[in-house]
Design a protein around this nucleic acid. Structure first.
Lengths: 210, 210
DNA sequence: CTTATATCAGTATAAAATTATTGATATATA
DNA sequence: TATATATCAATAATTTTATACTGATATAAG
């Protein structure tokens, strides 16, 4: 496999999204410059990104076949095989994630939630049961859960992360704004809204100054 | 202002978070290498990042004063002045965002929500009223709303974004997985969960292969 | 008080990512 | 069918970002 950069990885879902919407409106082929224009990227970047994951070459003048391109990106991103996940911490955000329908198209299947709050345990959110955090190990095995979606309060995030690792989780999608110190055999990806907001505010300030 | 990179901007909230937790546990000064170690970064990177925003210099052997550092980062990120925001689209995620307490510390104040669903209009979420999307212009002015937090369905995102711009919004924090074509006077920052998940899955796969 | 050293600031180097360039070619158009 | 051109792949140049190095200095330890 050729090396793919983090930045590239971030772009593929964006391409995919756009291509899917194009296909819905009946388009059957597209060129890199056209994609670039639609997504405000450079054509070189788009071409390189697509070259990396696409099995067939693009054709001058006509571009690439959309169906093939979609299939190749989905394949590359692993959307074609299902990964089971669980939400850890069934608060507002946790529940919103459990209710989110869109994960299915990413191959992510949220099978259940975990919490310590006894008033939540045994309830269902979007038809997915909420279990006690202390049944983690058995449920992870039982449901073949690979990814933990961590949405606990800050204070308990590290402790719960340790529990997850002990219970055999291989990847943590961390929505808690805390740096987790974790065995580097485990994949950790942080969703940091504060970082995103910092960029927005910075841009807002700059545009205001112009 | 010296130039700051996107990557750096993303890191400041992470530093801040860590420093706040340190201060809570009574620590009063910290060195760049110590921060680097705690957050799994390189000491050079941390030092450069801090140099950029810190008004006072660090001292060999003892490092930097935590209170000062926290204050400088907060100042730099604009956390000390309040920016009013509104949630556009009061679904599961929109409600979760309206309920999220953490934005206050970022200087972001969600004042209300907007939706087109008449069963939502007039209700309150976390004590913030939900207005009709068609009252956008007047409310934006009335409440001095600067940032729109966009959480609509895909299909309507672009159309609503246009309405927001017409109504005078200066920044859009876009949670919808759609590329918005917007006047570049407006700051747009995309929160793309699919991108984040793509990175996680890629790492998961790589670690599995090792 | 003196010395050793951790940390600093500033600069230089290296790595990563993006953008530009070049020559080739498949297709649309005449 | 011939020609012009949009797009391609591959490579080179540039820019951005991260890391390493150097000499200076404030503090801890003796």
């Amino acid at each position: 496999m050729e090396k793919v950069s983090i930045r590239q990885l971030e772009r593929y879902p964006i391409y995919l999204n756009y291509l899917l919407s194009l296909r819905e409106s009946g388009v059957s082929s597209i060129s890199s410059p056209a994609i670039a224009k639609a997504l405000s990227l450079s054509e070189e970047q788009v071409r390189k990104d697509l070259q990396l994951v696409s099995r067939s070459e693009g054709k001058p003048k006509s571009g690439r076949n959309i169906d093939e391109l979609i299939s190749d990106i989905q394949e590359f991103l692993g959307y074609k095989k299902v990964t089971n996940a669980a939400v850890i911490g069934v608060g507002h955000l946790g529940q919103a994630l459990m209710n989110y329908k869109g994960f299915a198209e990413f191959g992510l299947n949220i099978v259940c939630g975990f919490d310590v709050d006894s008033s939540l345990i045994g309830t269902k959110v979007n038809n997915k049961e909420v279990f006690s955090l202390y049944s983690l190990s058995s449920k992870i095995e039982q449901f073949d859960i690979k990814v933990a979606i961590l949405v606990t309060p800050k204070e308990s995030a590290q402790e719960v992360a340790n529990m997850l690792v002990n219970a055999g989780i291989k990847a943590i999608w961390n929505f808690v704004p805390v740096h987790l110190n974790i065995n580097d055999k485990i994949a950790v990806e942080n969703v940091n809204l504060a970082s995103s907001l910092a960029i927005l505010e910075h841009n807002l300030k700059q545009k205001g100054d112009e």
